[in-house]
Design a protein around this nucleic acid. Structure first.
Lengths: 153, 153
DNA sequence: CCGGAATAGTTGCGTACGCATGTATGTTCA
DNA sequence: TGAACATACATGCGTACGCAACTATTCCGG
């Protein structure tokens, strides 16, 4: 591993970090969220793709907070009538989360506005070809990496 | 703006978001931080590049928390002996933040370990050419965009 | 100069979060 | 079968955060 490689890897990471944070900040500032936290929208979005309902553990993979945090998050969303908890018929420990009509409607509204906002922020910075390159590179990074972990005890 | 463009922009954003979050989570889990919060390391890093000291407002651009949050963050770091506040000689309202020796040492230690970790996480996912492409694309996104803001009141 | 607007930073208060732990259910294997 | 372990979720508690309001200094037009 040469010094140059280390430098490049760190430059790439810093650029990735800053660009993502910059866009995220812009998006967050947008007037689109209707009293929804970022993680709350994450839940709505994840569930809009899973009409059968999801368990907390399944959601925990998508939403970037801890499991206890997610539990409370769902609790708040339940109080607001956005989701429902129901006992999992197959597993007495689990509960399935499902969108209410209100939650689904909110997801569609916010999701549509958000998508427009994303489009504006991305296309004003990169053209189609660059967007495609960026998407492909980032997807490459998301592929499961072989367990090349650094020396576990 | 075609449907295809909207789709591409949103796919690129989601990939950018997820890849950055995935790496960030890995890095955070690394045993490198010596009781330092992410934002605290951000402060140390920003200040390591500014030996003359920085004002809170200057830091606020780099660190991704609110200005009041930053004020308290600096307070905690001051209590731990990592930074010092001193009155700005040129502006009675401002204070300059400076690294203590302890803070500078910590920054070097954590920074070096973090850089190794970053290198490992990035190079196991992308090769040199891809890293370079990613860096360049992300830097492009960080360039100041012409004030193509969406209808300010 | 002087008064009002702008800027730099601090503080009160409410909230969402993470960690550690608790409770209940499921799984495994002697 | 039943005891030990694993899994799914909830809760107690401490903490860092954002927003709004505050104080202190500087800037600026008359």
């Amino acid at each position: 591993m040469t010094t140059k490689d280390v430098r490049l890897a760190n430059e790439a990471w810093e650029a990735l970090y800053r660009s993502m944070m910059t866009i995220a900040r812009e998006l967050k500032a947008g007037d689109v969220w209707e009293d929804l936290l970022e993680s709350e929208y994450g839940v709505l979005y994840a569930m809009s793709t899973a009409p059968a309902g999801l368990r907390l553990v399944d959601l925990a993979g998508d939403v970037l907070i801890s499991q206890p945090g997610l539990s409370r998050l769902i609790g708040r969303m339940e109080e607001r009538g956005l989701v429902m908890r129901e006992d999992d018929p197959d597993d007495g420990r689990a509960c399935r989360i499902r969108l209410t009509d209100k939650g689904a409607g909110l997801q569609r509204r916010v999701g549509a506005a958000h998508a427009r906002h994303v489009t504006a922020e991305m296309t004003c910075r990169l053209d189609s070809q660059q967007l495609q390159q960026l998407r492909d590179l980032c997807r490459l990074m998301l592929e499961p990496t072989p367990p090349q972990t650094t020396a576990r005890p």
